[in-house]
Design a protein around this nucleic acid. Structure first.
Lengths: 153, 153
DNA sequence: CCCATAAACGGGAAAATATCCTATATCAAG
DNA sequence: CTTGATATAGGATATTTTCCCGTTTATGGG
């Protein structure tokens, strides 16, 4: 499903990623074009699904989310029914920012943002009460060294 | 450093997170206010650093980033000099989307987005050539079950 | 409880911007 | 070349942002 982009498209995506608030004229100037072609390209990229949500990134700590855990999950259940329940549990919990199904020994990894360790425990207890899980390891983040949503186009 | 927010602030942040492109009038209508107070609140939240970067989220797979690894790192080196070098190596590599220093057994976790397994190996070889690392485990994501930047305000 | 002061609000004007239209330029294939 | 298809630039208009100002609402001291 890989999309064909030229150099101008890549420059536009780079600009949009680093600041989606700047004006078309400004982006056009930076990529060496003018607003109409830039606008047409953005619309196409949006329609093609390359450009998804436009959003603002908030300061988690300033908002009181002072703890971040990576949760490694092993389970012995692999039926569709269980997976459906597990997926729904993840979707329903806003503190789960990321969830991946993994290859290998560990089955799933979650990234969970909460106010503090107590809040994590509440989350954890509720999760294991809702879906059967064989083994859980939580890795506590002490320091966020890097965090970006940018793709190196 | 926790900021005091009222209910209107929270609604505004929720709206901005789910769609930063909508107009002030639209946001104002949704939060039950008018554009000026909303604009003033957004400006304050921006100045306070609560609202950070405004960006677009791109479809990684559509752009050819088809592999995502979580990398668990142990090291025996803990001097400031080593840490500085390691941090710089992470900052310099755009395929590293997240990096956390952890409490406990494992020292660091990275989230790395690349085109494929080969590209990951190039990254890995370059990293261990640049900084001394004791032990590395890579967890390969098979499926992204959930991915959001939204904080549950 | 009342007044004084500060803070938030709502509407509107002006500047900036997005969106779309049209004419021109560029490019690829025959 | 020439021709059709595609991308482009500039401009017109609708929308939006930004800021100003008069009014309303909250707050705190007496």
């Amino acid at each position: 499903m890989s999309v064909r982009l030229d150099d101008v498209d890549r420059k536009i995506l780079k600009e949009l990623q680093s600041d989606a608030g700047q004006s078309l004229d400004e982006i056009a100037r930076k990529v060496g074009s003018s607003k109409t072609p830039v606008w047409n390209r953005i619309r196409k990229l949006r329609d093609a699904g390359v450009i998804g949500q436009q959003t603002v990134l908030l300061d988690a700590e300033a908002l009181g989310f002072e703890a971040c855990f990576f949760v490694l999950i092993r389970t012995s259940e692999h039926e569709a029914e269980w997976q459906k329940k597990f997926l729904k549990a993840l979707q329903d919990r806003p503190e789960v920012q990321e969830a991946h199904r993994l290859a290998g020994d560990i089955d799933y990894i979650l990234k969970v943002r909460v106010a503090n360790a107590r809040a994590y425990d509440v989350f954890y207890q509720a999760l294991i009460a809702e879906v059967r899980i064989y083994n859980v390891t939580a890795l506590l983040s002490m320091e966020e060294l890097k965090s970006t949503t940018m793709l190196p186009i």
